[in-house]
Design a binder for these strands. Structure first.
Lengths: 230, 230
DNA sequence: CGTGGCAATTGACATTTGTCAATCCGCCGG
DNA sequence: CCGGCGGATTGACAAATGTCAATTGCCACG
């Protein structure tokens, strides 16, 4: 691993306050692996052996049941995933695959659990991070149960525009991934975009333009308790 | 608070391993309150001031957005709620109301956060509990995105039957609450029950009978990564 | 022993979402 | 420059879910 990779990981909320020895030990025992796109990194139902940190590229977390599959989230640099499973020494609830050429740091689960006992600041950061993930998942449930597909898309677009401080958005992944992330079929996503045309959303390929955020917001009815950061 | 109430709370996974002083301090500063049915205990968007423990009765956690509302979970004795908001000193993402006459222990959020710094075993329990809640929320998302309404009902019934080790279930709350918990309208729940009649589910009022769990399971396709305990 | 009130159910219909098939379109390799 | 591949879109239809209104049924209260 390059030194500045380590520095970037060190700056993650999860590691920023950890003691030097704790961080050094975690990184020392970790593997930094490179993967081409489309590789399955972990499978639901496997034992949680590693905490994963996406250093470069893009990783899709997804879940299956029977024949059905849905995208749970997209992890980009620098983000971690599967923390909860690692901590409780449980099996993964989600699978992961690379969407792009990626570098992933894999920290042995055992080391993470060990660090809990020895580094108070790290433990505190884990608590914060878990609580954050928990709350994100609750928001996800709220969005799924309280909104229609078109509304979820509209709010997703508004969030993106907000984050990028721009009215022109370039989708960071394929539309079929977005459709699954939002909990619908690709066909339905196309129709949702058609609906949003009447609210000032135009799209050409992966480039989406919002003519008037206020108009779109009137339709989307964004809610900080669903869409807000954190 | 009666001494055996304290003992029951003490036996919760969240408190079982805490030091005696930690637990004593938390309980000393807590309020035990009684509420009639239908009382709103907390409101989304309020600051998280207390960790709540349901000692008696039944509490519904629900969320709203605009005019819409959905039930997020039902908390029965002895269970806690709103841990994540308390820990991150954030606002509540969910509201809570009593469904029955209830007793609720309210522990000041500040004390809970203080205890994190001073009691390692308690902190460890908090991590475990948070991870558990996180994983439960992820399972909820999976259920919502991967299953139809009738399937969610079928799996809910199977889970109940499993937990009670009986083929006869008495609904612990009104059907409209169940419908909202499962993410559908009351009308749709009725229809879902009608669908399950063909799979051996008969209902008279709040009493549901499963003629053959295997048959029902063939329809429900239960999945430990969605329905399993934890 | 009625009877009012509320939850639950049912029917009719609208909306949303999914499925299947055909077509379009952009990009890349020959 | 031409195919050809895969993702995206569109149309037609089916299934799932929501909405509205009417009815049923149960229970508590007078």
């Amino acid at each position: 691993m390059r030194p500045d990779d380590a520095a970037v990981i060190r700056s993650l909320p999860l590691f920023a306050d950890a003691r030097e020895e704790t961080f050094a030990e975690l990184v020392r025992t970790a593997f930094l692996q490179r993967f081409p796109p489309g590789v399955t990194l972990i499978n639901e139902n496997d034992e949680a052996d590693f905490l994963h940190v996406v250093v470069e590229g893009q990783v899709e977390l997804f879940a299956t049941s029977g024949e059905r599959e849905t995208t749970m989230s997209i992890v980009e640099p620098v983000g971690t995933f599967i923390l909860a499973a690692v901590l409780n020494a449980r099996i993964y609830l989600q699978s992961a695959r690379t969407l792009q050429k990626s570098q992933v740091l894999m920290i042995p689960a055992e080391k993470v659990r060990d660090a809990l006992g020895t580094d108070e600041a790290f433990t505190r950061a884990v608590v914060t991070e878990l609580a954050r993930g928990y709350r994100r998942a609750v928001k996800e449930v709220k969005g799924q149960k309280l909104r229609t597909g078109a509304e979820r898309l509209a709010n997703w677009l508004l969030q993106r525009a907000e984050a990028e401080r721009a009215d022109r958005i370039t989708l960071p992944f394929e539309k079929r991934v977005l459709s699954s992330l939002l909990g619908m079929t690709p066909e339905n996503l196309s129709r949702a975009f058609a609906v949003l045309k009447t609210h000032g959303v135009t799209s050409r390929g992966a480039v989406i333009t919002l003519a008037d955020r206020a108009t779109l917001a009137a339709f989307a009815r964004p809610d900080p308790l669903i869409d807000g950061p954190e």
